[in-house]
Amino acid sequence: MANEVALTVNGLKTYIYTNNRCNRALDGVSFEIRQGKTLCIVGESGCGKSVTADSIMQLLPTLSRIEDGEITYHGPDGPVRIDQLPRDGAKMRAIRGKEIAMIFQDPMTALNPVYSIGFQIKEMLKYHTGLGRSDRHSKAIDLLRSMGIPLPEKRVNEYPHLYSGGMRQRAMIAIAMSCNPRILIADEPTTALDVTIQAQIFELMDTLKRDHGTAIMLITHDMGVVAELADDVAVMYMGNIVEAGPVGKVLRNPVHPYTRALLESIPVLGRGKDQEIKAIPGQTPDPYNRPKGCQFADRCAYRIGACDQMPDETQVAPDHRVTCWRYEEFAADAAE
């Protein structure tokens, strides 16, 4: 089971259209999520992390489309091509929530304020399981208890505004986990929470991964979180995965200048106030007016002439791939 693939994304291109302009938000993204493992997708704001999640869930805004590529869900009944299902068809709805569940960035706004937490859990059970009314209620209480919510018998009937931020995110996870999904997509689940609460939420997710074998796709921009939780990492920049591989290899031997720059921009605890933090120069390019060739070239310290053309993806190792012309030099550097 350990290496069983739960979801494959292959050459995914999702474009967003506004005012007759086209943002190639995802421009050929490939990765796979393995059962019982955590894949972290890292990158700056606007790099396409959330669009990736929305493409998998088919929750894209109206004016955007999956133009090309495949999303294959390897469910219990064989592979399903998610990108070919109608967005709001019965099949897609049966996968959403039951097979692939999602939690969101801000638990303050992701829960409906006019329904009790219990209602919002039970709604899920009602549509995806055959449980009767009273079973659904006790299951909702069990779920809240297993998420570490005190007094779940009482809390189940309370409304979201009576929950604290961390508890709301726990409730959100309870909703997401209610049907035992095979994949859990977490879109920056702790950005809106305190750091102490953040640790608790991640611990909870880690427990779920171990106990249920859930595959987790965690979207974050926090390299610390990646080091802590990830089994695999995919680094995204402007709609492409620039480097991907097992967490040990990518963090220890980064072979893409962007990954290196990201790692160098993190302050390290204990080095004091005077430590040198290297910010990445420049800004992300305008998505409607992209540079030709490598998207990172303009900000890259290692730019060469060849960067005017987009490099192909290369395997550094069987499980470690990179999109850079000069990766060999970085690999040699890392090997030293």
Binding site: A94, A101, D106, A110
Partner: peptide, 15 residues
């Protein structure tokens, strides 16, 4: 346009 609508969709609720 609120977030909880997206949540409801992500739960697989019918339109």
């Amino acid at each position: 346009s609120r977030d909880f609508i997206r949540t409801a969709r992500s739960k697989g609720m019918p339109e």
